[in-house]
């Protein structure tokens, strides 16, 4: 564990807590894409299948349970909780996110580190996570203005993988044989997809306006 990875995990944890806070306290998911949340639930479900077979540390298992629990409960809230579901912008959240799943699965079957069931699904989860934010970014374009909590959620979600990139650079220079091109390229693509959002998000800080 290094400071970059810990900062990355904490940023990721903060992003799900901000979203849960917004949904649970003000019972609103305005501006939040259910489709991105569904993709993230699939990402965690396919990435943490090894939670029962390979124990890394208490921290690792605990965080996996937190991410699994939060992503599925957010989907449940947005789909089935009356008050929250009413604030869901179904008409605008129309990105065909299922079209992302199959290509990621095919790619994982073609490009992976080991051809085993767990490893292919793990690789699939990396590719899917790289593009999971797309429905949310499209929804963002359509809803123009978003509230601060949603803006912070997206900022933290984008920032965590950026911190992971620093972690991979650190581990590359400090650990022999630490080379994971698939993870690195997927993580880079994921972070680059936020570039546009980061630009407007920082403009907001400079201009002191809402995120447009």
């Amino acid at each position: 564990m290094n400071i970059f990875r810990l900062a990355g995990d904490m940023t990721h944890l903060a992003s799900v807590l901000v979203l849960l806070l917004k949904i649970h306290t003000i019972k609103s998911c305005a501006g939040v894409s259910l489709r991105t949340q569904e993709l993230y639930a699939i990402v965690f479900a396919t990435r943490y299948l090894d939670i029962f077979t390979s124990f890394v540390s208490v921290y690792n298992t605990f965080m996996k349970l937190v991410f699994l629990g939060s992503s599925f409960s957010i989907v449940w809230y947005m789909r089935y909780h009356k008050a929250v579901h009413r604030t869901y912008d179904r008409e605008q959240d129309t990105f065909r996110h299922w079209f992302l799943v199959l290509p990621c699965l095919v790619l994982a079957l073609l490009i992976h580190e080991k051809f085993t069931f767990l490893e292919v699904l793990w690789t699939f989860s990396l590719y899917l996570e790289a593009v999971a934010i797309l429905p949310q970014l499209v929804l963002l374009q359509r809803t123009r203005n978003i509230d601060n909590l949603t803006g912070q959620y997206i900022f933290l979600l984008g920032g965590y993988r950026g911190l992971y990139i620093l972690n991979w650079i650190y581990r590359y220079f400090t650990e022999p044989h630490f080379v994971h091109w698939i993870t690195w390229i997927a993580g880079l693509v994921q972070t680059l997809l936020y570039a546009d959002f980061f630009y407007y998000y920082f403009l907001r800080f400079i201009g002191g306006r809402g995120v447009e």
């Binding site: 990875r5 990721h12 090894d50 890394v56 690792n60 965080m63 991410f67 630490f178």
Partner: peptide, 10 residues
């Protein structure tokens, strides 16, 4: 060994 056998990152 741990790294090889599985993934130690989230």
């Amino acid at each position: 060994a741990k790294e090889e056998e599985g993934h130690d990152e989230l």
